[in-house]
């Protein structure tokens, strides 16, 4: 069993990860805890709804019930990116060159490294947000599909349509596939044959017993791991057609316990899996070899993130249990 440093914050852990080398935990009440020689505890938000790491790994980007979008550095210093008043900022994403995307209700915004802000308004609520690998485009998941906006150009977005509510979105590291989580128990994907027009084949990934809330690309985008089943469902994306006509791997099958979160290792073909009983597992995708990293807890695991080198894993649960596992 690897070494675990446990904490209990007794508040829903929205994000557990590493800011630079320091473990960081962002909690739903608005507090952020940075574990250092002298621990830093700050309360940047009145209610925190979303958090992600900047691509350089040195800033935590957060959105709150207070309408604020903030960037927090390893010293606990807070920089305000935006203030949307009384709107809840519950979707957030970071992109290359310091890009930050965030959404509240039917409006989404992108802010570049020079603090230039650009907004997009939709007819329906924006439920997911992510950037393409080079940051030229930002994908917004919405009812009946995805809109691919240009971050730097005033050109019309490319619209990808598929009936139903799309609750999250991700683009493969090679930029060739775009995948959404849906309100129904399924993933939907598009092959981006022609990124300028959005033409390409649809991909349906179904069979989940519950909603998929967590998806993660493995190193180099070879696999897409997903939650929503009593095992991590891992789809192959090595061929031109992605997972079409192929069966996914079911890793870390645990009987009745549902997988709540997945996070792939930064360099190896390994996925960390969190369960609704608090267990954390790491599984090598190729030979399906499992290692138990945490046996159990009192609440579902909500956040899992590796450090840059892939030697430590931070976890956080819905009831505030959190920790760092040294591999």
């Amino acid at each position: 069993m690897p070494e675990i440093n446990n904490s209990n914050f007794e508040v829903f852990v929205e994000y557990a990860g590493f800011l630079g080398d320091l473990p960081i935990f962002a909690l739903a009440d608005g507090t952020v805890q940075i574990l250092a020689t002298d621990n830093i505890s700050i309360m940047p938000h009145n209610g925190l709804l979303s958090a992600c790491l900047s691509l350089d790994g040195n800033k935590l980007i957060t959105g709150g019930e207070d309408g604020l979008v903030l960037a927090i550095n390893p010293h606990g210093e807070i920089h305000q990116i935006a203030d949307l008043g009384d709107q809840w900022v519950d979707k957030i994403a970071a992109g290359p060159q310091g890009l930050v995307g965030f959404a509240s209700g039917r409006s989404a915004f992108v802010v570049d490294g020079n603090s230039e802000q650009k907004g997009f308004t939709h007819a329906r609520t924006i439920e997911g947000i992510c950037f393409a690998p080079k940051g030229k485009r930002m994908a917004l998941a919405r009812y009946n599909g995805v809109s691919l906006h240009w971050t730097g150009l005033d050109a019309a977005p490319v619209e990808l349509e598929w009936a139903g509510s799309h609750t999250g979105v991700t683009i493969s590291p090679n930029g060739k596939f775009i995948v959404t989580t849906m309100q129904e128990n399924a993933l939907h994907g598009w092959r981006l044959d022609n990124p300028a027009t959005g033409d390409g084949k649809h991909m349906r990934m179904t069979g989940y017993p519950t909603k998929v809330k967590s998806i993660s690309w493995s190193a180099k985008g070879k696999w897409l791991a997903s939650s929503g089943a009593p095992a991590a469902i891992v789809w192959p994306f090595t061929s031109k057609d992605g997972p079409m006509g192929k069966t996914p791997k079911e890793l870390g099958s645990m009987g009745d316990n549902l997988v709540t979160v997945v996070c792939c290792h930064p360099s190896q073909q390994v996925v960390a899996i969190g369960y609704d009983n608090g267990m954390v597992l790491a599984v090598r995708i190729d030979d399906e070899k499992e290692a138990v990293l945490r046996k159990t807890g009192k609440a579902p695991v909500n956040s899992l993130n590796w450090d840059k080198k892939g030697v430590r894993l931070a976890f956080g649960s819905e009831e505030g249990e959190a920790g760092v596992i040294e591999i």
Partner: peptide, 12 residues
Amino acid sequence: VSSDEEIYEMNN
């Protein structure tokens, strides 16, 4: 909390 009423049809 304010919220825009938004009806989703299920895909069934």
